[in-house]
């Protein structure tokens, strides 16, 4: 029977390196991080703009 039987689905003899999925996942992670950073940046800008307005109006009130 030598060589006639193939590895059944879901089994692997001495699993070898497979990097493709890791490449996909790391790319996705970088993209998510990029999006998150940009949104965070936009919110930070909104916050500092509000703080500045607050400071200016505070000064005017004084």
């Amino acid at each position: 029977m030598a060589g006639t039987t193939l590895v059944p689905p879901g089994r692997q003899h001495k699993r070898t390196v497979s990097d493709q999925q890791k490449r996909r996942e790391l790319a996705l992670q970088r993209q998510k991080q990029g999006r998150r950073d940009l949104q965070h940046h936009a919110r930070q800008l909104a916050l500092s703009a509000l703080n500045e307005v607050g400071d200016v109006s505070g000064e005017q009130e004084e």
Binding site: M1, A2, G3, T5, L6, V7, P8, R11, Q12, H13
Partner: peptide, 20 residues
């Protein structure tokens, strides 16, 4: 084990199934 089992990609035999 079969002789030369590691040279045949995708092969499956009792020793491989047992080890797995």
């Amino acid at each position: 084990q079969e002789e030369d089992q590691d040279l045949e990609e995708g092969a499956w035999n009792l020793s491989m199934a047992g080890g797995t």
